[in-house]
């Protein structure tokens, strides 16, 4: 009988600790499930193998408990999904605030961003969209979090990748912005910075990688090759701009762009994110119906 803090038995406290662990996981998952977006494409659910479909099976058999737990989970999930919009409609973020005209990034003045019209137009559209378009405090918090913690996917095909490495190196140090956590798995990355030419062979791989990323995701087309084909525009096998395959958020010209230009592009992406409507916009939850995934025959 070991008595510990507060005179409670150690075993009881050990059980409390274990339950706390469970509570942490459950709590965080509930929050994430409530506020996060959901979207489905066929490729998103496939295993990740560097952008190429897997050859053959990776695993042998399934667990029967999967069905039971899937049903239980679905029950609780539907309940919480219905609770959430009720909670929000009842007043959490309904303060009407006028949208700020200047989307500020630390230490860079609004005038120094050369294309103010794009963001200003976005802001105007948001305002003109109707009475329910608001940028509440919660949206601002989410946007602050997302814009300051953008993790790139390691995706360098050609020369621009070397400048990106210089960006991460000691002199330019993108870690100051919090961007240095470059993840290799698309599930864990926030944006894909296409550095280098995309050709016809690489295009399906890029599309697959993009679809396998978790929402919300962004794309920066870095270098002339990804913007329009660049010096290789007349080639028989180069994609004339990566926006033919995936939607692009920021275009960064240059051959290769200097690291300072990279920073400018990243700050533009941050501005764009700060203006986005998170709740009701970015965190849309798509339904799975209509997308029937056909089970692959084992090759």
């Amino acid at each position: 009988m070991d008595f510990s803090i507060f005179g409670v038995q150690s075993t009881t406290l050990a059980i409390t600790a274990a339950l706390t662990g469970v509570l942490l996981v459950v709590g965080a998952l509930v929050i994430a499930w409530l506020i996060g977006p959901r979207s489905y494409t066929e490729k998103k659910g496939e295993p990740f193998e560097c952008g190429i479909p897997t050859r053959g099976d990776s695993m042998a058999q399934y667990h029967v408990g999967y069905y039971l737990f899937a049903i239980l989970f679905l029950m609780f999930d539907v309940e919480t999904v219905f609770l959430f919009p009720w909670a929000f409609r009842s007043g959490l973020c309904l303060e009407e605030r006028s949208v700020e005209m200047e989307v500020k990034i630390k230490s860079m003045k609004h005038e120094d961003f050369k294309d103010n019209e794009y963001i200003d137009n976005l802001v105007e559209q948001l305002r003109a969209g109707g009475t329910n378009i608001i940028v509440g405090k919660l949206d601002q918090l989410m946007n602050w979090g997302v814009s300051n913690s953008l993790w790139p996917l390691c995706f360098g095909t050609s020369c621009c990748a070397i400048e990106f490495m210089c960006l991460g190196a000691a002199r330019y140090d993108m870690a100051r912005y919090g961007f240095e956590v470059a993840r290799n798995s698309p599930r864990q990355a926030d944006y894909i910075m296409c550095q280098g030419t995309i050709n016809y062979r690489m295009a399906p791989a890029l599309k697959r990688l993009y679809e396998q990323m978790a929402e919300p995701k962004y794309v920066i087309a870095c270098g002339s090759c990804t913007v329009s084909g660049g010096p290789f525009k007349n080639s028989y096998c180069v994609v004339k701009g990566v926006d033919e395959i995936i939607p692009v958020d920021v275009y960064l010209p240059g051959c290769p762009p200097r690291p300072e230009a990279f920073f400018y592009a990243l700050m533009q992406l941050q501005r764009k994110i700060k203006v986005q409507k998170y709740f009701g916009g970015v965190n849309r939850k798509e339904k799975l119906e209509g997308l029937k995934y056909v089970k692959e025959e084992t090759k």
């Binding site: 994430a32 996060g36 979207s39 979090g145 953008l150």
Partner: peptide, 16 residues
């Protein structure tokens, strides 16, 4: 910021 970002990311469920 990292925690907020990670909490709002989509939880992908794979097919197989």
């Amino acid at each position: 910021a990292d925690v907020i970002k990670i909490l709002q990311k989509e939880l992908i469920s794979l097919w197989h």
